[in-house]
Design a protein around this nucleic acid. Structure first.
Lengths: 155, 155
DNA sequence: TTGGCTGCAAATATTTTGCACTGGC
DNA sequence: GCCAGTGCAAAATATTTGCAGCCAA
């Protein structure tokens, strides 16, 4: 994971360059996103800035997330059964491994996606712009504790 | 694509075996699913059986889809921006290539997913049960017509 | 000064659920 | 006849939108 301070500065700089305003609420959000090692939901981001900005609304969180998505500074992980999660550290398509027991999300190493994407483009004639690759299963801890899947992610 | 008649019989047989009832509405749904070359939404299935069963409700469609998912007879393709699509012909995880211009969905050939899944399991210690792999881009036709992406599928 | 941003509320869209009634087996 | 399935409506979820007032630049 990148250094949170650097990451924050990057995002601040880009927002400025693109003519977006840096309100205190927005900066607070950026901090949360830059510091999150995991994959927070909009709700979680909201809860984390609420202590400092009690009047903040979810709408503001969603609106800023939308801006950040458009600028390519966060990746939205669309998980139907759980809602969206946001990754501000690796804002480009990459695989995720998701525990259906406890909800933990990992970012495994996997370099071959570019080749596979090209093969798909060749096979279909599509001009492919992005992808999503998610694996679902039980993490080691949930296996040990005999936990059952709560999230039934279909695809 | 499998022969629709055979596919229908398969599903009918399994529902019977598992003690599910075969109501006329349900059989109509099974037919639609077995005959669909594409990836219909719940709504589309609903619209297709409505002429024959005008009082049918969406709830019934969703409930039957749920049963079929549990029996492993349909694959649910969770596309956040468009809602879920259902594949009754290849009810196991496989890649999809989705046109963000017109919504067309293809099922390309790709054999290596098992190996990749094993590699992910090895790397993370997860017991992986299923996955989703979607590619987004413009189909040849939309490229030619200069169409722009309408669906902005995140990941 | 001003237009982007905020925050509240209402709207949207999709899927799920409760429940009385019906009909498949 | 029993009970799963149906159909209507209401609920639950998650996200988006409208708009009046505010404030970062």
């Amino acid at each position: 994971m990148a250094d949170p301070r650097e990451r924050l500065e990057q995002m601040v700089k880009l927002l400025r360059e693109k003519g977006h305003r840096l309100t205190p609420q927005r900066v607070a959000m950026l901090k949360v996103i830059a510091e999150s090692a995991g994959h927070p939901s909009a709700e979680q981001i909201y809860e984390r800035i609420r202590p400092d900005f009690p009047t903040t609304s979810q709408a503001t969180v969603y609106k800023t997330l939308h801006v950040l998505k458009e600028l390519g500074e966060v990746l939205e992980l669309s998980l139907t059964q759980v809602g969206s999660r946001y990754d501000g550290n690796r804002p480009y398509p990459h695989p995720h491994v998701i525990c259906t027991g406890c909800g933990q999300i990992l970012d495994p190493e996997f370099a071959a996606m570019m080749d596979i994407t090209q093969e798909m483009a060749r096979q279909t004639g599509y001009r492919i712009t992005h992808h999503q690759l998610n694996f679902f299963g039980l993490c080691p801890k949930c296996q040990k504790e005999g936990r059952k899947a709560r999230i039934k992610e279909g695809n």
